[in-house]
Amino acid sequence: MRFLRLIGRVFLAFLGTAGRLILFTADAVSQCVRPPFYPRMILRHMLDIGYFSLPVVGLTAIFAGMVLALQSYTGFARFSAEGVIANVVVISITRELGPVLAGLMVAGRIGASLAAEIGTMRVTEQIDALTTLSTNPMKYLVTPRLIAGVTMFPFLVFIADIIGVFGGYVVAVYKLGFNPANYIQSTYDFLQAEDVNSGLVKAAVFGFIVTLMGCYHGYNSKGGAQGVGTATTNAVVSASILILCFYYILTEMFFAK
């Protein structure tokens, strides 16, 4: 009996959280199309999410590309198939590694800072203060961040694609002795618009997930410093897990034929 009760309680808690999250999402998204708008806030967050994430995303991408070239060489050299390395690098980076690595890195950087900032605003009553100053806190705090996340993530991933492919090129040419012109030519030949586009769509979805999780956990944090800490942890963990889930779902949608 006690066991059944436990299962029931966990299940109900799960439904409650899912319901709250869906309502929160619906509210935040519906605010995107209703005035007033806050272009100043949107620009600020676009700068923060897009521009200031470039170093961490760039570093991640260049090393991912380098490792990819190195490892596929050790594998493919056994079958004398070194020629496909350019292909492997460019497809893996644009389709999969670019979006997912950038998504996870930025989930740590942005998800945590959003949750901490909004969470602190919640526990210091700044969110209540917004309401008393005729400002809808969802519209002022959450919606601009969502818009910035959805628009800037594809931009970041596009940059990551270029840097990642460049990383592969550097290793292939300077370490593995490939001919630069041939390598670039085969990269160019194999690359299709669909590879890049699917990666950018994934990036937009990941951007939505990261900013939504950061805002949701921050917005609903309670109980002082500890509450903000918990909210930050939850934001990063839930964003990372959701990114990996949707990573599979989107790949299945795009490429399972």
């Binding site: 210091t124 009553e125 700044q126 203060a129 008393t132 100053l133 005729s134």
Partner: peptide, 26 residues
Amino acid sequence: NRKFGMLFQGGALFDSLPVWENVAFG
């Protein structure tokens, strides 16, 4: 709520904005 003004216990000032923008926020 436009009829209301509220002084919060901890001030609840927006720390991302300068003082004058806090005052003029409403």
